[in-house]
Design a binder for these strands. Structure first.
Length: 152
DNA sequence: GCCAACGTTGGC
DNA sequence: GCCAACGTTGGC
């Protein structure tokens, strides 16, 4: 059992969009960073929980929790020339990119903002807060997970 | 919209 | 294998 943080731009796909999907479930496509892909593909397991993080928006921060309900399988958006995430180097025989399915679990009553997270010394180890970290998928320690839950 | 901090690409 | 050029991310 691992904990994660997954970033998405709410203008493109926010937690409200996930909640509105059939079965409140959607595939998490578009991961195009090798480090993030490796973690997603090799370490994310069915039943893992992840914070849903809104990035590149007015109030960046953690807005809720999702559950991994299907482990990594090839990201079909990489194979579709019409898709903005198309990658000509990915093929059905040798898929380069992967995705998981996530299901909505909880929306926080408020956004736990990036600004707020930075103010907690207990979270200095958090990858999210490290300078220059742009990973869209990152692991969260159990300690940090529980600490952040208390902030809601 | 700016720009720092990367990651990727490709010439050599 | 180096590294300059380029593209992307994402906070501000």
């Amino acid at each position: 059992m691992h904990y994660w943080l997954m970033k998405s731009e709410p203008d493109a796909f926010g937690i409200d969009d996930l909640q509105a999907r059939p079965k409140q479930t959607e595939h998490w496509d578009g991961v195009r960073n090798y480090q993030a892909r490796n973690m997603l593909r090799d370490q994310m397991k069915k039943g893992d929980l992840a914070f849903f993080y809104h990035s590149n928006c007015k109030e960046p921060g953690i807005v809720g929790i999702v559950e991994i309900v299907r482990q990594a399988y090839p990201d079909f958006t990489a194979l579709d020339p019409e898709n903005p995430h198309f990658d000509p180097k990915s093929t059905p025989e040798a898929p380069r990119w992967y995705m998981v399915d996530v299901r909505f679990r909880k929306r926080f009553k408020r956004t736990i903002t990036l600004t707020e997270l930075k103010n907690h010394h207990a979270l200095t180890e958090l990858l999210l807060l490290r300078k220059g970290n742009r990973l869209s998928i990152m692991p969260i320690s159990a300690e940090a997970w529980n600490y952040i839950l208390e902030l809601e």
